[in-house]
Amino acid sequence: MTVQRDIKSGVNPPTGSLAERIRSHAGLLATIGLGVLVVLGFGLETVLSKNGLSKYPDVYGAYEVLPLVAGVLAIALARLLAGLLHRPADFYERAAGDLEEGEDA
């Protein structure tokens, strides 16, 4: 069930069913939806409770921000790591002699 595109005309069909349009932009929509939900969550938390709607009454602050920070941090670190420790896929295999010169994994 792939979307039929009119290749000869060189342009995407201007119209299509709503479902097809959603499907082709699923990623974007999901991202926007998630962003809205996150913002809503923080809003709800601020509105609903004095101390924040924390899991525990004695833990203050919006620790729910952590995953956002952490996620960004982790991805940045991972990119750094990939840059630093990046080796060809058959690195060990070649070193151990499983693969000869010019042979693929």
Partner: peptide, 28 residues
């Protein structure tokens, strides 16, 4: 809330092609 935040970051990273998925490689 935690999960949504995490998912949001993931979605953003994928959307902006920041996710470190480039090639077949070995990481030490």
């Amino acid at each position: 809330q935690l999960l949504l935040g995490g998912a949001f970051v993931f979605a953003l990273a994928v959307g902006f092609k920041l996710f470190p998925l480039k090639s077949d490689h070995t990481i030490l």
